[in-house]
C-alpha cells in the first residue's frame, strides 16, 4: 500500500509521448498542472478545471481523459500521449492537424489540443465512425469561436484518406 503525505512532494514517473519522464508532486496537484508546470509540456491547455470544457484532454493508457479530473500521483506507470506527441520529430503537423488547419476547424486554438487528442483515439479505435459518432465524441469539448462543423469535416476527411492509404498498400 502506498501512502503519500499531504504536505510533501512525491516522485511521479510515467511515459510521456514514448519518453520516460519524472517529477515531484504534492498529492493535490492536478495532472494538468503537473504536465504544464513541472514538465513544461504546455501544449495541454487548462480551461474550466472542473471537467466541463475538455481543453485539458490527453490520452492516458490510450483513452482520452480530462487531466483536470486526475491527480498527478495517479499517473504513476501510465502511458500518456499529449498534443506534443502528434507532430513528428521535425515538428510537422500530422494529417488531422493539417486537415484542421485547412478546413478552418480552429480559430483561437485554445480548445484544439484537447479535441485533437479525443479524435486521435477515435480515429485509431473506430476508423469507420460516422458523423453522429464524431459529434458524440466532440460533445465532451467546448469550442467558443469556430463551432464544430469544420472539426467534423476534417475528421471525416482524414478517415477517408487513411482508408484509401491503407487500401492502396494491399
Amino acid at each position: 500500500m502506498q501512502r503519500l503525505d499531504a504536505g510533501l512532494r512525491h516522485r511521479v514517473r510515467f511515459l510521456l509521448n514514448g519518453r520516460a519522464v519524472e517529477g515531484d508532486a504534492e498529492p493535490r496537484m492536478l495532472a494538468s498542472d503537473f504536465l504544464r508546470q513541472v514538465l513544461g509540456a504546455t501544449g495541454t491547455h487548462v480551461g474550466c478545471e472542473h471537467g466541463v470544457c475538455g481543453a485539458c484532454t490527453i490520452r492516458i493508457d490510450g483513452k482520452a481523459q480530462r487531466t483536470c479530473l486526475t491527480f498527478a500521483v495517479q499517473l504513476d506507470d501510465c502511458r500518456l500521449e499529449t498534443i506534443e506527441g502528434l507532430t513528428d520529430d521535425k515538428g510537422d503537423l500530422n494529417d488531422l492537424q493539417t486537415a484542421f488547419r485547412r478546413l478552418h476547424a480552429l480559430q483561437c486554438g485554445f480548445c484544439t489540443p484537447g479535441i485533437l487528442m479525443s479524435l486521435d483515439q477515435l480515429l485509431e479505435e473506430e476508423p469507420e465512425a460516422d458523423e453522429v459518432r464524431i459529434r458524440d465524441v466532440l460533445s465532451g469539448h467546448i469550442c467558443r469561436c469556430t463551432g464544430y462543423q469544420g472539426m467534423v469535416d476534417a475528421t471525416l476527411e482524414v478517415m477517408a484518406a487513411r482508408r484509401n492509404a491503407a487500401g492502396g498498400e494491399e
Binding site: Q2, R3, R28, L30, C48
Partner: peptide, 21 residues
C-alpha cells in the same frame, strides 16, 4: 480551482482500503 491538501493512499486490496477507512 485547486483542491485543498489531502493524504493520498493507494491500497492494493479491498481489505487494505477498509483498514484505512
Amino acid at each position: 480551482m485547486k483542491p485543498a491538501a489531502f493524504d493520498y493512499v493507494r491500497p492494493d486490496s479491498v481489505d487494505e482500503a477498509l483498514e484505512v477507512l
